[in-house]
């Protein structure tokens, strides 16, 4: 009944469009990343440069991936650290 009154005044229940848009947004994060394999490689290179300023890392062991859960996509970087520098210039 309240829903009916809501519609009468131009409101209305939430439709499936929101889900469509949210699911699309997430799936496109993946699609776009895999369409340009260069993107992840470039990201790795720059990560190495930045982190190397602060610590010595195992460059060959570095992994960067997209991790997907129900409602979000996360960028997961696994970076083995060899030593941390004592001071940064």
């Amino acid at each position: 009944m309240f829903e009916f009154i809501g519609k009468l005044f131009g409101g209305g229940s939430e439709g499936s469009k929101k889900q469509a848009k949210e699911r699309l947004r997430l799936v496109l994060v993946h699609d776009r990343a895999s369409l340009s394999p260069g993107l992840v490689e470039d990201l790795k290179e720059e990560l190495i440069q930045v982190i190397s300023k602060y610590m010595e890392i195992d460059e060959d062991g570095l992994e960067v991936n997209f991790d997907e859960s129900d409602d979000s996509v996360a960028l997961i970087a696994n970076i083995p650290v060899k030593t941390v520098k004592r001071n940064v210039n």
């Binding site: 939430e14 439709g15 499936s16 469009k17 469509a20 848009k21 947004r25 496109l28």
Partner: peptide, 17 residues
Amino acid sequence: DMVRKGDMMDISDVDDI
């Protein structure tokens, strides 16, 4: 009709994406 009910993406939604 479906856009109005919130059951279909509208022009602005497709544009956003």
